[in-house]
């Protein structure tokens, strides 16, 4: 209800916290602490943001338990964010212990996260457009096959340009931008269908992930040194986009949860 103070308070607190995290990250990025804390300080921001978005998505799944359609979407969404959160944690730990890790366990969680996001998109697509069963399955299979075909083709081209044979590392390097492209396209489509509504917001957050990841992929694949240097503006843009994607998804899920829990607590025009 308009004028309900508790959800307004919670929402304002979440907004301030998200803003504070975003600004602090900028400060730490350009003025990093000395010594051991240098590596861990920036990674911690991603960890906190990932936990925040996972918790809010899980809350949303919890509140949607009586509704089979939305429940399926938010369960997969929360699991995907949870897997990414685990990946962030593992990556941070490895980074602290032995410097930036290469291919490793974290990638298993990142790749699985993409799969669960795919399931969430599929569930949302089915609920929105109510396609016949054969069509929805065909669309899902087509996107999966296209993603695999594209990632293998890019991996092959990448390996050739590096003078290597096709291996898992090359495939992963190619898979991430392709996965991001698929997620970005799906998110854009769903956000377009829900345009103007609060249901579009978590998907717009996902779009931010796709943009940030594409920037990372470009920086990594280009191998231009000044872009990769710590403290570079490009890296900051990619990092802050990635951080804001977690924060935005978390805020969008939190807003939806608050409304489901307390009703429309902000005044709507009628």
């Amino acid at each position: 209800m308009p004028g309900n103070s508790r959800p307004t308070l919670l929402w304002n607190a979440a907004l301030i916290a998200a803003g504070a995290i975003f600004v602090s990250y900028g400060v730490i990025f350009f003025f990093p602490p000395k010594g051991e804390w240098k590596a861990v300080s920036t990674d911690l921001f991603f960890m906190v943001a990932a936990i925040w978005s996972t918790v809010t998505a899980a809350l949303l799944w919890h509140v949607y338990r009586p509704d089979p359609g939305p429940r399926r979407i938010w369960f997969s969404f929360a699991v995907a964010l949870g897997l990414w959160c685990l990946a962030e944690a593992i990556w941070t730990l490895q980074n602290v212990l032995s410097g930036p890790p290469g291919l490793g366990i974290a990638d298993i969680f990142w790749v699985s996260g993409y799969l669960f996001f795919g399931i969430a998109f599929y569930a949302q697509y089915k609920l929105l457009l109510i396609p016949p069963k054969w069509l929805s399955r065909a669309v899902f299979a087509a996107i999966l096959l296209l993603s695999l075909a594209l990632s293998f083709s890019f991996a092959f081209l990448l390996a050739r340009s590096r003078g290597e044979t096709l291996n898992l590392e090359n495939w992963l390097a190619a898979f991430y931008p392709v996965g991001d492209l698929a997620i970005g396209a799906g998110a854009l489509y769903i956000a377009y269908l829900f345009r103007g509504g609060m249901f579009s917001r978590p998907w717009l957050g996902m779009l931010l992930f796709a943009i940030a990841d594409s920037l990372y992929a470009w920086v990594n694949l280009s191998q231009v040194e000044y872009l990769l240097e710590s403290g570079s503006l490009t890296l900051y843009v990619a990092d802050s986009l990635y951080l804001s994607a977690y924060l935005a998804v978390g805020l969008a899920c939190f807003m939806q949860w608050l409304i489901l829990r307390y009703g429309f607590f902000y005044a709507t025009k009628s």
């Binding site: 209800m1 509140v63 949607y64 009586p66 509704d67 359609g69 939305p70 609920l127 929105l128 249901f199 409304i259 489901l260 829990r261 009703g263 429309f264 709507t268 009628s270």
Partner: peptide, 20 residues
């Protein structure tokens, strides 16, 4: 709407309409 937004959200939209 209920299949998309669930029971709780349907309840809240109903409340909005009841105010009117």
């Amino acid at each position: 709407f209920r299949t998309l937004a669930g029971q709780a959200m349907t309840g809240h939209v109903s409340e909005q309409l009841n105010i009117l």
